[in-house]
Design a protein around this nucleic acid. Structure first.
Lengths: 144, 144
DNA sequence: CCTATAGTCTACTTAATTGGTAGACTTATA
DNA sequence: TATAAGTCTACCAATTAAGTAGACTATAGG
């Protein structure tokens, strides 16, 4: 049930990007330095976010990353689900044909409710909302 | 965010054990056959459940597995948390000292709410409740 | 046009985890 | 005392996660 570091790094990077408030793109170097994430590793993550249409990029000097849509239209669910595949805990919840006993399986009900609860929480957090929560503490960084 | 097969097998095995309703222990062989789980693999899982005081065992002929407590006192949270470690998605939610920025980290709030929501769902499902939901369909089995 | 900046692509490495298996050993019933 | 059961130790293979390296491409600005 652990979230991959990819999801967590993505969340932190997106917030860093959102802080620019559309003024100018932020470079990967700056994100890495403030978030203490390896640049090459973050590259993989940002490419995926770009392909998902969550962020956009500009190459060359003065280039960098910026949000592809309004912070109010990006949720934590959008970000996390890219890296965790489906967020459902069990395959059969996504694809009931996978399990012959699906219709009457007692445990299935647990996994379904779990997924619904998770989605609800993740969808409730937009980047906009997180920006309101955010506050800068220079000199401190994440350890995970 | 996927649940390991250990958790899922454990849940299914526990339900199988609970079906005996304390009459006599059920052998691993019987559980495996009805649940289509490898006996050696399930052994590892059942040992862990035993060490957690969730089930108890009797060795030798007429031996097998039975619940160590009342089905109403065993929740899905008890079972899942053994195999997933903590169910929290991120370390810092368990141990805030791990992260220097914890106090004001905007993403932390998401992971915390996620954990709370998960716990709530898992704790709401007791084995007793699942037994009421359960229904037998002989000849069919789980595919996952 | 050249150069420096900054993203992109491909491919690798390493370590951990997951899922699973084998076989010797212990316990206890009949 | 034979046999049915759980237990312990140790291994194996496949996958995924995390991270790295280096060549390549695009573009702003002089």
């Amino acid at each position: 049930m652990k979230l991959s570091t990819r999801s967590r790094y993505a969340a932190r990077a997106i917030i860093e990007i959102a802080k620019q408030r559309g003024e100018k793109p932020i470079t990967r170097k700056v994100i890495c330095e403030s978030q203490q994430i390896s640049s090459s590793y973050l590259e993989n993550i940002l490419i995926i976010l770009k392909n998902q249409g969550i962020i956009k990029t500009i190459r060359g000097p003065k280039g960098g990353y910026s949000l592809a849509k309004d912070p109010a239209d990006i949720t934590m669910f959008d970000i996390v689900s890219v890296f965790e595949g489906s967020i459902s805990a069990v395959h059969c919840v996504d694809d009931p044909t996978q399990c012959a006993r699906y219709e009457k399986c007692p445990t299935k009900i647990v996994w379904e409710e779990l997924m619904v609860a998770q989605q609800k929480v993740l969808k409730s957090f937009t980047i906009e909302r997180l920006m309101e929560i955010d506050c800068k503490i220079p000199g401190l960084e994440y350890s995970i």
